[in-house]
Design a protein around this nucleic acid. Structure first.
Length: 928
RNA sequence: GCGAGGGUAGCCAAGCCUGGAAACGGCGGCGGACUCAAGAUCCGCUCCCGUAGGGGUCCGAGGGUUCGAAUCCCUUCCCUCGCACCA
């Protein structure tokens, strides 16, 4: 439908008129501004966007969630910080600049302006006074400032290692920026397969914090388990031992193993092709040199080859898994004193452990395969424990490796009472250590072989250099005499030179900018031309929101310590191992630099929102499978979009965008607005003292309270869909009340007013309009959230009413009663209630006996015995019921619903003859 | 291979932690009210049988615990995601 048609205006509201009006009003009242002196406000944060210029539905969902929660908290009386900013450095701006003769800055600023306008269109309640833009020198100067501080603290290293290179983006990438798809490593931004290059780059030493980053995850209850698990995987955790082996080359080579217990079975030694000792040997031995070369270069071809094939694993096809070359050198097995041959083997990876290992073919499958191929002896040193399920005679290590390591399953230690230990392995052929369990042997051997117990992790230091223009210049100068020298703090920020279109890094081409004096010796020097990974920007932006204008520090320590951690963070799962690890790292470093007090984790609660799909598949601009937010909002209104998104599914789940769902949301809003307008115009009911109506009014009042309680609970738990479902039910009830009785306008008004408030966080514009119609004071955005106690015994009563209504329907239906005229409902007599309660709480063995033994009940004779028998059959399932008077009152309150449904008179009776069939919670029903 | 999360009526989807009602809600379908009619709105029904509220079957499959299991335990199958030549 077209906005603002005459037809619409008659009965509904026109969102093109209403939405800007209230946006202005919120603005004028500074509703969303948080003063600096606010005490520990609720910090509700959506991951700030990269300003691409167009919002997509994922953004809308993200912000609809945080805004609803923030608005809800505000109505609860909290001060709320709900800020927004722009993650505005990055390659797309540079690409756009190359494509269409603009400069990255201009393009970015235009995009920000458009996106901000779209956010305003959505009516998001954001504190724009705290807007943060990472590509502004006022922001990125602090990146440089942090870089220097980190450098002073020894957290910055410049080192050469094998790095990921994206040929399309023409820059190195951190490990975190590389994703694996079908065995191929690709760039997270452009999906181009990456290459490996050895380069010297700048690193933040995230590994210094690996232990804490890993261990703290266990305590982060506010995070979803899958994100924590992803981070655990990413950081890695292998407990083992490092032991040195002496080689005939004269080198002492450290290995890392989780199976030190098997050391007596080591029959060869293996180095990865990248290992320094292997590299040295390659210099002396042609065969080794050739193998190392093939291993290093086969790599790339093999990857593209395996990509073409079905591509199960990224196993090199050029080099089989068992490939390797004997170096002619030997290592001494410290356990046996034997000389074992040293191989260079491709299956040994340079970035796992130390890149060197002793191989135990008897107890490791890969070592086994290698040994078979190269005719190396296989010696068993672990066998099944005497009490293990496996017969030692069945173990043939010549045929296959026996990998049971005999680790005690902690959960099963107690279970050894069943006569069988869970420890499967004990040592054999290991001299004096025979008979020890693997675990005991490991304990012993660390000392015996002068090793070191250690935890190996897969987390690597964070490579932050990027060979791109549109980022924060790394504040260093390279002097031919002094080496790398930091730019003095007084000279910060190092700003970007004008953009030039060039292949490669534009900063390299900015000759004038590049040439500087060395801060140390004053001689000619060159600026570092790399810029920082943009994840540096996003690692602390949530701190800048706290003191956005501060110009002598990145943020105010005292205020940040009070306002952090972020109470609720909402964003996409794609940042699980990137942004969310980097931010945690930054926060810990800042805490250790005393810039934060008592805060070591930035985000208390994390919600990863699900995708918005269409027709079962993800919305994607490349396939055109999208619903564009802007046209949608212009046509149907922001509230419609927000309501639909939030009621369609729980925030963390994916959901399908459907036309029907959106339409249903729109119609609901129009309908509920119309109801408010009708109430406001005085067209509903008349003030007329009618005693009969009192129970009905009370019924509605109780439903209003119950809905409020439900909505509150659900908002609190981020289940907006459940809250909204309850609100829809209440609206439906209020309508029925209005239509079918002589309604009390005050009751209707209270219902509609409550609905307005409950809806305000989700459909804020319509809610303001309704609030205005109803004559509410001020803005509903600033109104108090309604009280939230559920009425006494509400659940029991609801069950009673629902059951009774259903029973009436059943009877009418099954008995084929055409036109019921009178429905009589009779509550069970007092004594039955007493027996029921007695049965429910009694623990007597013989319930019937116990009941009949009580003279209160005995006087009801046979009826009491029968009833007791029935109860006995289901005594464990008996649930609490209302007392007779309460039951009767509840049914009287609900009687109007039955009258309305069947057009029959309904009478609710106290117990009488007609109540013979009645039971507590199940009244007798007579229909005529 | 390791790990995490899932499998609920035609579809989407609650409930499972803290066992106790054929199992919330939405969509679709069916019937009814209102209406000249359509739309909108409202009220029901939607696993099977049943002319007074009853009975049967049911929550991926199979076992078990229990008076009682969608919920707890074990086994098994399938799906999604993350990690993975990890020494």
């Amino acid at each position: 439908m077209t906005a603002g048609t005459g037809e619409q205006r008659d009965r509904g509201f026109d969102h093109t008129e209403v939405e800007p009006k209230w946006q202005d009003a919120w603005d004028e009242h500074g509703v969303f501004h948080v003063p600096d002196d606010a005490e520990d406000p609720a910090y509700v944060l959506a991951m700030f966007p990269y300003p691409s210029g167009e919002m997509h539905m994922g953004h809308v969902r993200n912000y609809a969630i945080t805004d609803a929660y923030a608005r809800y908290q505000r109505m609860r009386g909290e001060s709320v910080l709900h800020p927004m900013g722009w993650d505005s450095f990055g390659l797309p701006a540079e690409n756009a600049a190359m494509d269409r003769e603009v400069d990255p800055r201009g393009w970015t600023m235009d995009c920000i302006a458009t996106m901000k306008e779209q956010m305003e269109l959505m009516g998001l309640g954001l504190d724009w006074d705290r807007e943060v833009t990472t590509c502004e020198p006022e922001y990125f100067r602090w990146n440089q400032w942090f870089f220097r501080r980190f450098y002073d603290e020894g957290l910055v290293e410049r080192k050469e290692t094998g790095l990921n290179w994206c040929p399309s983006c023409e820059t190195v990438l951190a490990d975190e920026n590389v994703t694996t798809e079908g065995g191929t490593e690709i760039c997270w931004r452009c999906d181009t397969p990456i290459e490996h290059r050895d380069m010297e780059q700048w690193f933040f030493t995230t590994t210094d914090y690996a232990d804490e980053l890993h261990e703290a995850l266990d305590r982060m209850d506010g995070w979803p388990e899958n994100v924590r698990e992803m981070q655990r995987n990413w950081i890695g955790h292998q407990e083992g031992d490092a032991v040195a082996f002496e080689l005939t080359t004269g080198d002492s080579v450290e290995i890392f193993t989780t199976r030190l217990d098997t050391i007596h079975g080591a029959t060869f030694f293996a180095l990865s092709p990248g290992h320094p000792v292997a590299q040295d040997l390659a210099g002396e031995d042609e065969a080794v040199a050739e193998y190392v070369h093939r291993a290093e270069h086969g790599d790339r071809e093999a990857r593209s080859a395996s990509e073409a094939s079905s591509g199960d694993a990224a196993r090199d096809e050029g080099l089989p898994q068992t490939s390797g070359v004997f170096t002619g050198e030997y290592a001494e097995n410290p356990a046996t004193g034997e000389e074992i041959p040293v191989y260079v083997a491709d299956y040994v990876l340079s970035d796992i452990g130390t890149g060197a290992l002793y191989a135990v073919p008897a107890h490791d499958e890969r070592d086994h395969a290698f040994a078979r191929e190269h005719d190396i002896p296989i010696r068993q040193v672990v066998e099944p424990a005497p009490d293990a399920e496996v017969d030692p005679a069945d173990v043939d290590v010549q045929r296959a490796a026996y990998t049971e390591d005999g680790v005690l399953d902690l959960g099963e230690v107690e279970g050894s009472s069943d006569g069988r230990s869970e420890s499967d392995g004990v040592l054999a052929n290991s001299g004096e250590y025979d008979g020890l369990t693997s675990e005991e042997a490991r304990e012993a051997f660390v000392d015996v072989f002068d090793g070191e117990r250690r935890v190996e992790r897969s987390l690597r230091d964070w490579c932050i250099s990027r060979q791109r223009y549109w980022g924060t210049p790394i504040p260093f100068v390279e002097c031919p005499d002094c080496g790398y020298v930091p730019v003095p703090e007084a000279d910060l920020p190092v700003e970007l030179p004008a953009f030039v279109r060039t292949t490669g890094n534009p900063l390299d081409a900015a000759e004038e900018w590049k040439q500087v004096e060395c801060p140390d010796c004053g001689g000619p020097a060159e600026r570092e031309t790399d810029t920082m990974d943009t994840f540096v920007d996003s690692s602390w932006y949530f701190l800048r929101y706290i003191s956005p204008g501060m110009d002598d520090a990145p943020f105010d320590t005292e205020q940040a310590s009070d306002w952090l951690p972020v109470d609720q963070y909402v964003g996409g799962i794609e940042h699980a191992t990137m942004h969310l690890i980097y931010s945690r790292f930054f926060t810990k470093v800042l805490a250790d630099l005393d810039m934060l007090e008592g805060v070591r984790e930035p985000f208390e609660n994390l919600l990863t929102q699900g995708m918005v799909r269409k027709g079962g598949t993800a919305m994607s601009s490349s396939t055109g499978n999208v619903v564009s937010p802007r046209p949608f909002v212009e046509k149907h209104g922001a509230d419609t979009g927000r309501l639909f998104m939030l009621e369609a599914a729980r925030p963390e789940k994916d959901f399908d965008w459907t036309e029907e769902g959106a339409r249903s949301a729109h119609e609901f809003l129009q309908g509920v607005y119309a109801l408010a307008a009708e109430v406001a115009s005085g067209a509903v009911g008349k003030v007329d003292a009618d005693a009969d109506r009192a129970p009905i009014d009370e019924y509605v009042a109780r439903e209003v309270s119950a809905t409020t309680a439900t909505a509150t609970e659900e908002f609190e738990a981020f289940r907006f869909n459940h809250a909204l479902q309850a609100v829809r039910e209440l609206v439906s009830l209020v309508r029925r009340y209005r239509d079918e009785t002589t309604p009390d306008p005050a009751v209707v008004e209270r219902g509609v007013e409550t609905v307005t408030k409950l809806l305000a966080p989700v459909a804020p514009h319509v809610a303001e309009e309704m609030w205005d119609e109803l004559g509410g004071e001020g803005l509903v955005a600033e109104a108090d959230w309604p009280g939230a106690d559920p009425p006494a015994s509400y659940d029991i009563e609801r069950r009673l009413v629902e059951n009774t209504r259903e029973d009436v329907r059943d009877i009418v239906d099954v008995a084929g009663i055409e036109d019921p005229e009178e429905v009589a409902i009779a509550v069970a007599p007092d004594w039955k209630h007493e027996v029921h309660e007695f049965a429910r709480t009694s623990d007597a063995d013989n319930l019937v006996g116990a009941v009949m033994g009580d003279e209160r009940f005995r006087e009801h004779g046979e009826a009491a015995a029968d009833f007791a028998k029935d109860l006995a059959a289901e005594r464990e399932a008996l649930s609490e019921t209302l007392d007779p008077a309460a039951e009767r009152a509840a049914l009287e309150r609900a009687a109007w619903l039955i009258e309305r449904e069947f057009g029959a008179d309904v009478t609710v009776l106290a117990a009488g003859e007609s109540a013979a069939d009645a039971r507590p919670g199940r009244p007798a029903i007579q229909i005529d």
